[in-house]
Design a protein around this nucleic acid. Structure first.
Length: 236
DNA sequence: TTGTGTTTTACGACCTCC
DNA sequence: GGAGGTCGTAAAACACAA
């Protein structure tokens, strides 16, 4: 199989055999310890063919130069055509199969990194959306309070006008409110927002625990205001 | 020095494309 | 059918705290 082919190929006697050696290791920023696991080499892991007769370890780290060359090539093009692979392998003293494997792993790392970045970005947007929702719900509470006070004032004025015998036709704004019958606020749902004592507007919230106190539930992503918020962040 | 967590190298299985 | 891709995983190499 391929395992035997890999270690029977030319790269075995190339300079990077010294990569894990003392000189190379000491040239790196942090000294690298060598740990021998020779005892395990003979252990039957069912992975026969690890040794190429000479007791060579199964894996060898690539040298910095080899990794650098591979990195440069990867930046140019993430896919690897046959010609490029063979050329790169010859140039770096590697087996073409090693180059292919390195590119596969490098693509996987790249993808993983991209996913991490994407996750962080989405989390940031999520937190911002939660904060925005909290602001909106607190604003709603304030508006409801004002509405209640206004309705109370209207009732008071009406009763005062009624006691003076006037048949109220001057209550324009008051009528408008009154026309709503059971008050518009009755159709509002305050949701689950609990007003935080120290919360009085934007810029007051920082840590997530405050967010959690403010908005104990995380549903409602279909809310159009949240969609707007996401679009503000350029996420959709 | 050692135990443990992370990174790197390598492989097999499976899929797609030519 | 072969070459090269992704995905999942094993294991060596390595870093580092205790």
């Amino acid at each position: 199989m391929d395992k035997q082919q890999v270690f029977g190929s030319s790269y075995v006697d190339m300079p990077f055999f010294a990569a894990n050696g003392t000189a190379q290791g000491e040239s790196r920023p942090r000294a690298r310890r060598r740990r021998r696991r020779a005892a395990r080499c003979g252990g039957g892991d069912g992975d026969g063919g690890d040794m190429d007769g000479g007791g060579d370890p199964k894996k060898r780290r690539l040298t910095d130069e080899q990794v650098h060359g591979l990195e440069l090539s990867f930046r140019e093009e993430r896919k690897l055509e046959t010609g490029r692979k063979v050329h790169l392998a010859a140039e770096l003293g590697l087996d073409p199969k090693q180059v292919a494997v390195w590119f596969q792993n490098r693509r996987a790392r790249h993808k993983s990194k991209l996913m991490e970045e994407e996750f962080a970005k989405l989390k940031h947007a999520h937190d911002a959306a939660i904060l925005h929702k909290c602001h909106l719900e607190n604003e709603l509470l304030r508006l409801k309070e004002r509405l209640g006070a206004t309705e109370e004032e209207v009732r008071r004025l009406r009763s005062a006008a009624g006691s003076h015998g006037a048949s109220g036709n001057g209550g324009d704004a008051a009528d408008a409110v009154g026309a709503c019958g059971g008050s518009p606020s009755s159709s509002f749902s305050t949701g689950t927002c609990q007003q935080h004592p120290g919360f009085s507007g934007a810029g007051q919230l920082g840590p997530d625990d405050e967010l959690m106190m403010c908005v104990p539930e995380y549903g409602g992503y279909a809310d159009s205001s949240v969609v707007e918020w996401f679009s503000l962040y350029g996420l959709i």
